[in-house]
Nucleic acid binder design. Structure first.
Lengths: 317, 317
DNA sequence: GTCGCGTTTGAGCATATGCCCACGCGTTGG
DNA sequence: CCAACGCGTGGGCATATGCTCAAACGCGAC
């Protein structure tokens, strides 16, 4: 060629190639002809353009920020799965979006022809997700509860998520026929050894997917509002450093389970530490931010589905 | 699926797909799996993302602006070819860049195995381009001059571009053995009919590529500075509305050839009106802007090679 | 309910892309 | 001066992409 150019001209060509490819929409073949190089070289120029960050992509859409946040969360906390839905400015209740994503996740898991085990925790998002799951006949699947579904007064809990999901799939289901809290550590230890409970625990241990909520441990803690723990029990846990709970198990700001308090009398199946199977938390709201952050940091969960505002707050240092 | 969404969610998905494709760098197959759609749909989402301009590309490189300008010029003036080289802020003499692009164009044309005819006009850029052409053996090509190469004093012109290009290619070459201007219209008409001149004209008419310079018609007009036209002749042409010249042919602001003045005594081969064969002008400089604009508007040329600053000025309304 | 009608879908195929490999050219070091 | 090395190149192939087309799917109208 006429120009025995310096090496800077290579970047120029890369920029040209990138422009022609991404902006003008030419094929690499055309670019190769225009720039008088082989197609292979044109391809190299285009990828050089990318590698040198000569070209940048900007996605003008609220979703973009969500994807960004999800990717950051995933990498920061080494998650297996993370989804961030837009925070709808109109209705700050993005719970619907979260529930929809959770439902989608459940759909995806349940669609499998080979038998799968799904374990469910507590939380409004989890329940809402179950309501949205598309009915599908999967009699060989198993749905198992991670928390007791008998409330303090002995009636079956309102949150019979396991039953609801089983209805929609025809799967066998294993509620946990125990109160949320037993009256003493000894009693708890006795109960969790009895046959039906041990079986639930065994099945839960093999779960392919755990979907749980995250509760904050403050005056408005869901476990208290719903009447599962008393004000005094809640305060004790807070004194012990609790910032959040997953399936009732309270943990501190570092995501370590609290040793005493209600955790000693809790019948829920303990979380794996760290989470091995896909354990996904669905949670949103400013109040839950410390709890979410702790759960992620302590690897109580390895997945998160939340909304944009919450994601931002969790990442905010 | 769990969500019987509105049509807005389609754009959300498009944005997601676009993000995953362009920013995260996933393949469409992977995206299809993530979004729970067929690969074909994923492809549709990605192209929807493009079509809806949800994603934009930004090229962080001086070249980008040049490509942009070239594309705009090409479309505005319906050009067959347009190149814009960066105006080097260090040395405002971007002529080297232009010459290099012209040389590249010549290389490209001359590389052809089948015989081609290249016609050359005047201009420093043209001459500099010829100097940079890569030697290549093409004895069956023909190089023809569009302007007389005998200067007023009878010596061969300094600008023997045809000869130089022929040297580098082994091509047959046809200089135009005439003065730039004859003394009268009659004499010009007689001369252009004589055999060698008529032959040059015939060959030039079949040229595959015409590469010409554009001269402005002001006090520093190259045709005057180089001594081809006198000050009085120049002023006359300016009075007649001339703003520029191509191969000596003066034209007005609309790109129409001036009827009188030196155009009546000019021996240069007249431009096609409008240009049919690829006729490319190489020109740069603030002073030439009106001349360039007129030449493009009047379709005296259908191609342009210039620098960034000039391109911007030509487009500036 | 059912009969079009327009839209969306997924399979299939031609094309474009990304990448590996062997080659050639220029450069460096002996 | 030559050999070894490194870098860019182009051919070729597996994969990814874009697009067509027929079929399925709502969705209204009757």
């Amino acid at each position: 060629m006429a120009a025995p150019d310096n090496e800077k001209s290579r970047l120029d060509d890369a920029a040209r190639a990138g422009w022609l490819y991404f902006i003008a929409g030419h094929t690499q073949d055309e670019i190769a002809k225009m720039l008088q190089v082989s197609r292979a070289s044109a391809q190299r120029l285009v990828s050089l353009c990318l590698a040198e960050r000569l070209i940048t992509f900007r996605l003008e859409h609220p979703i973009a920020a969500c994807m960004e946040l999800a990717a950051t969360l995933k990498s920061r906390f080494d998650l297996m799965h993370c989804e961030v839905v837009p925070s709808d400015p109109a209705s700050p209740n993005a719970a619907a979006g979260i529930a929809e994503r959770c439902a989608n996740l459940l759909d995806l898991t349940l669609r499998s022809e080979t038998p799968v085990i799904v374990a469910l925790g507590t939380g409004r998002a989890v329940r809402a997700a179950v309501e949205r799951v598309m009915p599908i006949e999967r009699p060989n699947h198993q749905i198992v509860s991670l928390v007791g579904n008998i409330s303090a007064d002995g009636s079956a809990s309102f949150f019979d998520t396991v039953g609801r999901l089983a209805d929609r799939t025809g799967a066998r289901h294993y509620p946990m026929p125990l109160p949320f809290l037993m009256s003493s550590e000894d009693e708890r230890n006795r109960m969790v050894r009895i046959e039906p409970i041990a079986k639930v625990k065994a099945i839960a241990a093999k779960a392919d997917l755990r979907l749980v909520g995250i509760g904050q441990m403050d005056q408005k803690a869901q476990v208290h509002v719903d009447g599962f723990v008393t004000r005094e029990e809640l305060f004790e846990m807070m004194r012990l450093g609790a910032v959040g709970e997953v399936t009732g198990w309270a943990y501190d700001a570092k995501g370590r389970l609290i040793k005493g308090g209600t955790n000693k009398r809790l019948t829920s199946i303990p979380p794996q530490m760290p989470a091995q199977t896909t354990t996904i938390a669905a949670a949103l709201g400013q109040a839950k931010v410390p709890a979410i952050r702790a759960a992620l940091a302590g690897r109580l969960v390895n997945g998160l589905i939340t909304d944009e505002a919450t994601a931002r707050a969790v990442l905010d240092r």
